Computed example of a mutant assay.
Amino acid sequence: MRVSEIDLVSPSSVDKCLYMLRDHDKTFRLLAGGTDAIVQMKDGKRIPDIWINIKNLTELRYIREEKEGIHIGPLTTHTDIVKSELLQKKADVLVGASMEVGAIQLQNMGTVGGNIGTASPAGDTIPALFVLDAQIELSSFNEKRTIPINEFFTGPGKTVQKQNEMITNIIIQPQSENEIGIFEKLGPRKAQSISIVNVAITLRMGSNPRECLEGKIAFGSVGPTIIRSKKCEKMLALGPLDDTAIQDIAGAAWKEVMPISDVRASAKYRRSMASALLERGLYRLMNRWDAR
C-alpha cells in the first residue's frame, strides 16, 4: 500500500478527534507512533477507511502523580517512561518493560497507549500495567468510562474499546517504599523481535529477611491475553523467598500458563521458559532486596 492511497486527518484537539469518531458510516483507526499500525497496514491488516493522526495532541502526553495514582497519557512514549524519575522510583517494573520495547528508535516513537490499543498478548508494557493495577480511561464525545486493565482485553487484538472511543488516560498504583518490581523477557534482543515469553513481577516485602507479604505476577505471550499467575502469587507469602521457595514457585508457573505453538516457539518451550523467567526474576529481586 502506498502512502498516497491513505486517507488521513489530523485533528487539532482531543474534542475534535472524538467528534470525528462519532461518524458510524466510516471506520477509523488512531495513529500515534505507528510502530505497530504501519506494520499491520503493510500486511493488509486492520486497514480503516480513515486514519486519524493524533501524534501532535500534546495534551495526551504526560506523567504526573495525583491522589488516586500516577496518571500516564496514552501518547507518552516508552522513552518518556524510561526517563521519568517518578516512574523510576514508583513504577520500576513499567520502566523495565519500556526499556525492552525494541530499539531506541522504537522506544522514541512507540506510545504506551498504542501498546495497549494493539492488544497483542506479547506487548511488553501490558504485563507491567497488570501488576500495577492499571485503569484505562476511555472517552467518547459524550461520556467517559474507566475499565480495570484485567477487563479491558478480550482476546488477541481485541478489547472492549468501542469504535467511537479512544484511550485518554492510564492510571497506575505507585509502588510503595517496600515494594520492588522487575520485568523479564525472552526474545532475541539483537533481532528486535517481539517477546516469546515475558513476565512482570512486583513484591511487597516485610521486615524479616526475604519475607514477602504479597506479590503480583503477570505473564505475556503465553495465552490469548495476559495471564495473572494466581497460584504462584499465593505461594509468595508462604515463607522466606529462599532457593527452595523460589524454585517451587517457578515450577508451579508451568501449569498456569496456556501457550500455543507457532513459528516462534512451541507450547512446551514457552511453558519451560515461563518457569525459567519467573525463577530468574525472583532471584534478581531477592539479590536487589538483600543489597538494600
Rank of each mutant, 00 (worst) to 15 (best):
S229N: 08
N115F: 04
E179A: 11
T244S: 15
S176C: 13
T79Q: 00
K16I: 06
V9D: 00
N115C: 05
S195G: 12
M20I: 02
A32V: 06
K185F: 07
G239R: 07
I52F: 06
V101T: 05
S275W: 13
V131F: 06
G113S: 00
V93M: 05
G281V: 12
I171V: 13
R22Q: 13
E179F: 09
Y269P: 09
G123Q: 01
K158E: 14
I246K: 04
Q163H: 04
E5T: 09
E279L: 14
A276Y: 14
M273I: 11
D36I: 01
Q175N: 11
I126A: 05
G223H: 07
G110S: 08
S84W: 02
Q175F: 15
A253Q: 07
Y19M: 14
G44M: 10
R270H: 07
K255S: 15
L238T: 15
K67Y: 12
S193F: 15
P188W: 15
D248T: 14
T154F: 11
R228W: 13
I201P: 04
Y283V: 13
P174E: 14
P188Y: 12
I38L: 01
G223I: 00
C232A: 11
T244E: 14
N169A: 10
V14M: 02
A128K: 01
N198T: 09
Q135A: 07
S139W: 01
S221Y: 04
G206Y: 12
G187T: 08
F219A: 07
H24P: 12
T202R: 11
M235R: 13
K190T: 14
R189Y: 09
P240Y: 06
K158C: 13
L129Q: 00
A274M: 05
S266P: 11
F183I: 03
G113Y: 01
G102R: 03
W254A: 12
Y283F: 12
P188S: 14
A103R: 08
D290M: 02
I54L: 06
K162V: 03
K158V: 15
L86W: 06
M273E: 05
M258G: 14
R2I: 15
R64Q: 09
I180C: 14
S13C: 03
T58S: 02
K16A: 07
E137N: 06
E279R: 14
V39W: 04
P174S: 15
A218D: 04
R29S: 04
S12I: 01
I167Q: 04
P11G: 02
